[in-house]
Each structure stands twice: as C-alpha cells, then as structure tokens.
Design a protein around this nucleic acid. Structure first.
Lengths: 345, 345
DNA sequence: CTTAGCACTCGGAGGAACGGAGTGCTAAAG
DNA sequence: CTTTAGCACTCCGTTCCTCCGAGTGCTAAG
C-alpha cells in the first residue's frame, strides 16, 4: 500500500530531525512545520507506527524511524542531492593531497573517505583471481643467489632476491628464463604448480631450484593479487556519537571493525552507491548500524570498494552524495590510462 | 633520602594493589598484609604522601601512587621476573603463526605486541638514511617502456614498470645499465641527483629519460627506506579499562594514537626495555599514560622498536617481561642471516 | 477529516538521607 | 621513640523520593 503524500512528508521530516538530533521527534514540532495541528500529526504518527515505519522508545516519548522507515526514506523520500561546491572542494583537496598513484589510492581510500564523511570507513581491494604472470626475468647475483622478477598481467612488477641451497651456473640463467616464460607465463597458480613437477624431471637439481624458487615467488605474487584486502579506518569516530555513549556498544563495534573486517559487507550489485540499513546487514554486530558502499574503477581492472559504517541514524543524503562524488573522482583521476609512474612494485 | 625498608614495602604493595584494582588502597588492607596495625600504616602513608610517592584522590579515600611512586616502583621495587612458561608459549605461538619474513615482522610487530600485552601498541620501523643502491638493472618491454630494478645495500630488490615520453632503442638499455651502475651505485640520494645533471648532457634525450626515470625510482626507494614508519594497533583496548570510562578521555587518546602516531616516543637509550611514566612523556596527550618500549634488531641493520601505551596504572612487571621476551625472540628469529626467501620486493 | 481539550504516562533532573570506607588526631601502651 | 587503640569526622556513592515537563491517546466538537 502506498503512503499518502502527507504521511511521506511526515516520515521524511521525522527521519531528518532524528538524524540531526538523535532524539525522538514530537508531534508539536512537526505540526508547526506542516501547518496542521499536533493532533493530526499524532494520528498520522499512530498509523505510521502500525505500518512499521516509526516507533516509540517508550510511551510518552516522540517517534523515531524504524529501519523500515529509513529504508523508505532512502529509497523514495531523500533528496538525492549532489555535493555542494564546498564539499566538492574539500573532497578534491583531500584527494589531491594524498594520491600519487593508483595503488596508493586503493590503500588510502578508506582513510580519505572516513575523513570526508566523518564516520568510520573501510576500503576493499578486490582480488583478481584471473591474473597471471606475463613475463619472467632472472638476474644473477652470485653462484647461490639470483633476483627473480615477475611482471603480472596488470603490468605490476615485483622482484625478490632468492637464495638456493646448491650453487648454479650463472650462464644458464638465460636459458632458465626462457624456460620459465615458455612454460609458466600466462598460467594460473594451479597450472604453474602442475607444470613444475614435469619440468623438474628434465633439469639438474641446482637449476631446478632456481626455477622452483622463481615459480614459488610468482605464485606468492599472484596469491597476493588474488587476495581480497580490507582495511578499516576512523573507528574511533563513533565515540563522538550519542548512540555509542555506552562503552560496551562502542567497544563491540570497534573491535568488530578491527578484528572482523573481512566480514564487512561487499555487495555485488551494480548500483554506484548502495545502502544497507540496520538488520539488512547479515552480521549480527552490524545489526544496528548502517553501511553505505560505493565502488570505483581505476583502470587495469583495479576495482575497489569503499564503505562507511555508522549508526542507522546516519546522514544518508550527505554520505551517499559525498561517497558517490568520491568514487567518481577517483575513477576519473585514474580511469584514463596509467599516469606516468603510477603502479606498485 | 633513602626510604625505610617498610616504606618501600608499603609503596610496593600500594602500587600492586592499585594496578590490579584501579582503586585507592586503604590502610586496613595493608595492615593485615604487613602484620602491623592500620594506624601504623596510616602514619607511613602520611609520610609517603609528603614525600610525593602517594596521593589521595580526596580526603577519606585510600592512597594511589603518584608518577614518582610508579617510577620508584619500576626502578627498584618491581620484581623483574622473566616470563612464565605459559606466557613464553603464548608469545612463541603468536610469533610463529604470523611471521614469515623480516619485513612482515616489522609491519606486524605492533599488532603482535598489542595482543600479547592487551594494551594499545605501536611499532616503529627505524629509517635507514645511509642506504644506497647496490645494483641497477634495466629490462626492455617495448620502445616506450622498460622495467627498472634496483637492489639496495640491504639486499632488498624493488622494481617498477616505467614509461617514457620518447621512444628509445632497446639495444641501448644494456649500456645505460652499465652507466647507471658506474655513476649511481653506492651513491646517496643527493649525490644521485647531482650526478643526474652531469650525465644528462652526454646522452640523447630519449636515453636520458630512461636514466632519469630509473634514478627517480631509486630515489623513491631510498626515501621509503629512510622514512621512519610508525604504526599503531589495538587502540580500542583502552575501552575496557576503568580509567577510560570517560569517553572524552578515551576519544582523545584514541585519536592521538591514530592521528599523531609520529609523536609517540622513540627513546634513544640502549636499555633493552624502557619505561616512560605519565608526565615523563613530553607530549601533553600522553601526560597521564605510560609507555613501555623495547627495541629489536633483526639483522641487516633492520632495527625496529615496539611500544606499549596504557594508563599509568599499567602492569609494568608483566609488560616489561613480555616485551623483553618478545624483542629477544624476534631478534633471535631473524638475527642470524636472512632465512631463505625473506625480504620484501 | 481536523482540531481543541484533557487526563495520563513516563523518563530525567534535582535533592535529601544514609551507609560505609577511610582518614587524622590523641592518648596510652610497649 | 614507635606502635596501637579509640574516636570523631569527612566525603563519596547509592538509594529513594519528588517534581516537572514533554508527549501521548482519547473523546467530543467543529
């Protein structure tokens, strides 16, 4: 059933006042705003309560929105405003100041967002399981050590000094390099392991050690790229919010954000900004918080996701606007090809 | 003036009870423990107060140690016990579980320590300003991009894909590599910049770009190694401590630990474990907290430092013992040469 | 359907009373 | 000179009570 226009207006007003004050909203205040009597508002209140959009903390208190109320607000009532010039300015500056390359962007996104919206935030580096090694290089150091260099499909280059138990002939490294590129380039982690066995039979032990160390390093590199990485920041910001005056609640949420960050929601949908309200979060620890997430794309298939965690009484309009602007800016900044020296080692 | 034996006993008992309970200690309790009357204890209390070792939160309350009292306790009274078998076991396991290489050790030290002592902790990676590049390598990719590889004096290898505005002849890379090794290896960051100017005049622009990009990358690498890096963890643990029941205090300390971590003390002394009590900390935000720090050495001149932050009512005996054991274990684990694959890229 | 009026509920603020832990002081005992 | 028993006093934290006001639900009139 569709709510009457006035009910929507009332719900919207209740949500917005409650977001601002964190205190139940009474009928008198709204009566003044809407130009009707408080009794009328009370009647509407009663019906909105029955419908599950509002609730009373106790008899003779004002009304506060339920999660369902917030949901309707976010879906239909909220003004989807763009960020103001001031806000845009502030976000741009935050971005400019700290972003030198794409890898740093992903690492810092959480921190930046947290400072932009003033709630705890998290950032997720999406794992890329399809990544393979595009190129191997070997550089001799001495007869028992060499440098392994791998370049992955996303043009990241990593390298490591490797030491072997047996001495090897440095002149053979070039041959091994070709062997590596022929047999292991473009292969998944699992294929590499499989091939290693068959290659092993054809090589002298000392040389096989070189190959296996290199492949091991490559596998590590791919594992790291495949890993989903979650970082949280700004958890202490909740201490300023009245809903976390209770230390136990504050502590519970903070430890969750730090210790269980892998369980923070990573929704799959394609909406630019998504909102999860209270009990919509599967995790019990988030049952009375809301989460707003946005995903961004900074080229090279480096997709990331940033989220904001706060009380259900979150300023959804501001947070969604700023988060959308942030994600958009980030995508724009790095979307078009790699700036010159931008990539991680 | 030296305190009488009994005064020391009393001070020690007060400190230990206060550490355990966070509540002022009364004369009756100590009377029972020492086998004297409470009046005697009160007389001693009064004198210890005058001498500045104890204080009363208010008349008709028990006594609590002053920072000076804690100082005497730490210097002379505290039993410098070693960790118990259980504790050692726990610490060893914590270390074993999460440490694969030396670089990871430095990064994780704070987190590990925090979980070991159950206070907020921080770890400092000491910057190595004397580091230089030991070896350069260039690997061609296409006519406008190449891979720069640098190995630093501490045997860390880093690499990056670089792109140039002008196309260059890949066959010349080998010559450039020798030029780089001849002119820039073993040089400080400043020397490298200076040499870059003189080298520039002798090279075609496209080739100079390759050299300058590589040197720039090398400089970045050295900068990063020179940077002192501070990480804090476990800040939320203070929320369980009675002295931080006051949200404002808790918030103040937490934001300090997160936002001003560079200002955390990094004492220079050579004692294995150092204790800074309350006002001994220069920073105002730490004026009523205590800090315990230990430094470790994991070879290759990679020195690090771990610290614990907590209320002045910190369990110094346990914390110093565990921290000392932790630092020692870490040094032992990585002290003797690099384990096989251990280093960062 | 809206509004005015009214009795009712409930939480929070403010304040008095109380109990108890702990003190300082004094005077006597060792 | 030190230790102890005794005692009056201080002060904090708790409990209990009252009171106030904001806000409600209901009813009856416009």
């Amino acid at each position: 059933m569709e709510l009457s226009e006035r009910k929507k207006q009332i719900l919207k007003a209740v949500v917005e006042h409650y977001i601002e004050s964190a205190e139940p909203v009474g009928s008198k205040l709204l009566a003044r705003e809407l130009g009707v009597s408080s009794a009328t508002v009370r009647n509407e209140f009663a019906e909105l309560c029955e419908l599950g959009y509002l609730e009373q903390p106790h008899t003779s208190a004002g009304r506060a929105p339920t999660p369902q109320g917030y949901r309707l607000y976010v879906n239909e009532l909220m003004e989807r405003r763009a960020v103001s010039a001031d806000e845009a300015e502030h976000i741009d500056e935050t971005l400019r100041g700290r972003l030198t390359d794409a890898a740093g962007a992903v690492a810092n996104a959480g921190q930046l967002v947290s400072s932009i919206v003033n709630y705890p935030a998290y950032s997720v580096k999406r794992g890329n399981r399809a990544l393979t090694v595009e190129r191997f290089e070997l550089l001799g150091v001495d007869e028992r050590s060499f440098i392994a260099v791998v370049m992955t499909g996303d043009k990241n280059v990593r390298s490591q000094l490797c030491q072997t138990a047996l001495p090897f002939d440095a002149a053979r490294l070039d041959g091994l390099k070709h062997l590596l590129n022929a047999h292991f380039a473009g292969k998944s982690r699992e294929e590499m392991s499989a091939r290693l066995l068959s290659v092993g039979k054809q090589l002298a032990p000392a040389l096989f050690l070189v190959v296996s160390k290199t492949v091991e390093f490559a596998a590590q590199t791919l594992d790291e790229a495949a890993r989903r990485d979650v970082e949280t920041t700004g958890a202490s910001r909740i201490l300023t919010m009245p809903e976390y005056r209770d230390m136990d609640r504050a502590h519970e949420l903070m430890t969750f954000l730090v210790d269980n960050k892998e369980q923070l929601p990573v929704p799959e949908g394609d909406a630019p900004v998504q909102v999860l309200i209270g009990p919509e979060n599967v995790d019990a620890a988030l049952r009375d918080t809301s989460v707003v997430v946005a995903s961004y794309d900074i080229g090279d298939g480096m997709r990331g996701l940033v989220g904001v965690v706060g009380p259900t009484r979150m300023d959804y309009a501001t947070v969604t606007a700023r988060l959308a602007y942030f994600a958009e800016s980030l995508s724009k900044l790095f979307g078009k090809g790699l700036p010159d020296g931008a990539k991680q080692d």
